[in-house]
Each structure stands twice: as structure tokens, then as C-alpha cells.
């Protein structure tokens, strides 16, 4: 599966469009990690626990999008965009969407 953020696959011709595909996941924070982050927040710097958590979740969203594209018979997803929104205190939704296409 080829993933790109441009509206074509560089170096290849698009044969067919399958429309929008998307994947999303809502994740809550681990209590222990949240507590550690609270301590870390006093001194500033990177909150590694959160970075990891959001990365994992985003990969999950991408996987769901890819699965949907595969089921349509696509071999590439182009023009991928991400969006993050907090739905509740301590929970975030990660959303990935793009256009499923078949390229040569």
C-alpha cells in the first residue's frame, strides 16, 4: 500500500478512484502515565508517554484507513490528512483520511 500526502502518486499513473477512506480511533490516557506527565509538567520538556500513545493511536487510525482501502481493491491512498480533537477530558480522537486509488 502506497501512502502519500500529495494528490497523486509521484512517478505513477492513477488508473481508478475509489473515493474517500478514513480511519479513526479514540484513546484515553493511562492513569499512571497521566500522573507521571503531571509531574513532568512542573519542569517542562517532552512528555514521552503522550508522544508514544498518540503515535500508536495514529498508526491504528492509519491501519483502519488502509484496511478500508484494501477492501475496495485499492493499492494506494493519496492526499492523506490527519486531524486530532479532544472529545473529553483525558481522551483524544485521532482521525486519518484520504482518497483510495489504484495505480499502475
Amino acid at each position: 500500500m502506497i501512502l502519500t500526502t500529495v494528490n497523486f502518486v509521484p512517478g505513477r499513473k492513477i488508473l481508478e478512484h475509489y473515493g474517500l477512506v478514513s480511519g479513526s480511533t479514540v484513546r484515553a490516557k493511562h492513569f499512571g502515565k497521566d500522573f507521571m506527565a503531571g509531574l513532568k509538567n512542573i519542569v517542562g520538556g517532552e512528555l514521552k508517554g503522550y508522544t508514544e500513545l498518540l503515535n500508536e493511536s495514529r498508526n491504528e487510525a492509519i491501519n483502519r484507513m488502509v484496511t478500508q482501502a484494501q477492501s475496495m481493491g485499492a493499492n494506494a491512498v493519496i492526499n492523506i490528512r490527519f486531524s486530532t480533537s479532544s472529545v473529553a477530558q483525558g481522551a483524544a480522537e485521532l482521525y486519518a483520511y484520504g482518497t483510495a486509488v489504484r495505480v499502475e
Partner: peptide
Amino acid sequence: RLETSTVSASTQKALNSVEVLAYGT
């Protein structure tokens, strides 16, 4: 593309953090 979002916490007052995502081809 660059995307910035705030990561809200269970205790809003104590925690303020920002997530930045960069992605491209």
C-alpha cells in the same frame, strides 16, 4: 503539513501540553 493540538488532561489546571504533528511525502 503541520498540525497542532492541545492535549487535555484529567486535571486541566495542572497540565498544559501541546502536540505537534508534521507529515509529508
